[in-house]
Amino acid sequence: MFSRNKNQNSSVSIDMMKKQKRYEALVKAFHADLFRYAMWLIKDKAIAEDVVQETFLRAWKSLDSLKDEAAAKSWLITILRRENARRFERKQFDLVDIDDVAVADPHIFGDVALEHRELRRIMSNLSEEYREPLMMQILMGFSGDEIAEQLNLNKNTVMTRLFRARNQIKEALLGEELKGEQVNG
């Protein structure tokens, strides 16, 4: 009877090892994208890190529910967005402060070439309803249908928002160019 228990234990630990490997593969494949996504969503490095950690922790706990590895990215973004929403429930007052500070400073995204810094400033000034589908499309490589599902919108609305997002960015860039010309001229 004892030897049978031992076998069960070892099969349990083999399952744990398999789960661990699967988890580590997910972390390695998606941690960068998720962190970037969280940064653009939250605009605070510490909170973004925290939300990504919570996301992966949730992912670990319910890893068995992920049947198809191909769906992993969508699955993780769903968890991340939920975790971020929970943060709103928990810390409403903190968030208002952070948002005010964060929007003002594009340097939070790290030192980069001037043009990227400018693009980052423009993007962080986009309203969330435009920024988020754009991040999903560019950063995560989601299709229109996938974005629609994530944001619980119909695809036409998503497409309109993506169009407006790029339109606003383009206009903002043109505005910068005009400003530059004026200064030069």
């Binding site: 960068a32 970037r36 890190e49 950690q53 992966f56 922790l57 670990w60 790290g110 980052r120």
Partner: peptide, 28 residues
């Protein structure tokens, strides 16, 4: 423009973030 946006979005990830995530899960 999209390529520029993609680059601008690719902000640096904290050092050893993946290791941290794996470690954190283990501790938890």
């Amino acid at each position: 423009m999209d390529a520029q946006l993609a680059q601008a979005m690719s902000i640096p990830v904290p050092e050893n973030f993946a290791d941290k995530l794996i470690l954190r899960q283990g501790m938890d």
